[in-house]
């Protein structure tokens, strides 16, 4: 992102106070609680956090989709001047796939087994862009080639079960980027792929964001990918964003003890990065029994008395960097430098 863009970022999507609950036998499981974020056009936001922290549920909710019997209990998702979550079903349907699209976490089950790849990619192109059958097919071939699939024509004629996991993942990606959506959500888009293909996909997503101005929100466990690709990072814990900010700032001076834990094994910002997040001792509280205060308190090395009783708000620590933590809220910049060293 260049300086002029940073001065006047045109917001692609803005989320306000989004919450998602799933009913369970033990009461509602609050998978996502009061999440707000905004992503500018052309910006790339990485969402990280340990398994079960709500990354997938959050990205689905951005499209107004909730799995099972869950519900979006509150919040707004502003996209192109309208709140997606307040749209009538027909309008929402029109926005999905065209203005906001998603690469799903599990490519093995996310493609329809009885419909050919061609039909699956071509249908949204025809529906949203009004392309003719032939033009849509051309575009599909081109998209598959861009994802690095060696034989696009053959892939197009295939059914999902005839493709490998990596190929399905790339088909999924081609489908999602087909209409050049304003916002592209990608849930672990490169997990199933080997390193070279991963590089191709990153390249494709980079071009989508820099040339087409799409905002890319991607979920990952790969901190190397975050460092290479993302502009900003948001750290989720037990359904909340506990810290977010420019990648380099957060890596250099994480403000939330959880973020520090995640990054703990990184010796220096310019040193080699580990592939996966490191484990932190303990586990998050069940989503049905979230405490009144900070959900991280039981695992936190710097917990204060007020942490268990009162929920810390996200406060700005540096320009663009916010964190929700009582313990670090008052610590000054010099201390932060010491921590990151």
């Amino acid at each position: 992102m260049d300086a002029s863009q940073q001065m006047s970022p045109e917001i692609a999507v803005e989320v306000r106070g989004l919450s998602v609950e799933f009913p369970t036998a033990n009461g509602p499981a609050r998978a996502v609680t009061d999440v707000s974020l905004s992503v500018a056009r052309g910006e790339r936001l990485a969402i990280v956090g340990e398994s079960g922290s709500g990354k997938s549920v959050l990205s689905l909710a951005l499209m107004g989709i909730v799995g099972g019997s869950g519900t979006i209990t509150g919040g707004e998702v502003w996209l192109q001047g309208q709140d997606l979550l307040a749209l009538r079903p027909e309008q929402l349907r029109r926005a999905r796939g065209r203005d906001i699209a998603m690469v799903f976490q599990d490519p093995g089950t996310s493609l329809n087994p009885v419909i050919s790849i061609e039909a699956q990619i071509v249908a949204p192109l025809r529906r949203h862009l009004g392309l003719s059958r032939a033009a849509a097919r051309e575009r599909a071939l081109q998209l598959l080639a861009e994802t690095g699939l060696p034989d696009p024509a053959r892939t197009l004629a295939a059914f999902p079960h005839q493709l490998s996991g990596g190929m399905r993942q790339r088909v999924m990606i081609a489908m999602a980027v087909a209409c050049e959506p304003t916002v592209l959500l990608a849930d672990e888009p490169t997990t199933a792929l080997d390193v070279t293909i991963q590089a191709q996909i990153v390249d494709l997503l980079s071009r989508l964001s820099s040339e087409r101005g799409s905002a890319v929100v991607f979920v990952t466990h790969d901190m190397g990918l975050v460092a290479r690709f993302a502009d900003r990072i948001a750290v989720m814990y037990a359904g909340r964003i506990v810290e977010s900010g420019p990648v380099l700032d957060v890596f250099a001076a994480p403000q939330h003890p959880y973020t520090r834990g995640l990054l703990a094994s990184i010796p220096a910002v310019d040193g080699p990065l580990p592939d996966r997040l490191t484990q932190i001792d303990g586990s998050p509280p069940p989503l049905t029994e979230l405490p009144a205060g900070c959900a991280f308190v039981d695992r936190c090395p710097s917990a204060l008395p007020q942490c268990s009783s009162s929920q810390p708000a996200l406060t700005e620590r540096r320009p663009g960097q916010v964190a929700a933590c009582w313990a670090t809220a008052t610590i000054d910049v010099s201390h932060r430098e010491a921590v990151s060293a």
Binding site: R96, A101, T109, S110, A123, R127
Partner: peptide, 13 residues
């Protein structure tokens, strides 16, 4: 309830 139906929905079908 399958994932591919969710995909179809997410693509505006």
């Amino acid at each position: 309830g399958r994932d591919y139906v969710r995909t179809a929905r997410a693509m505006g079908t």
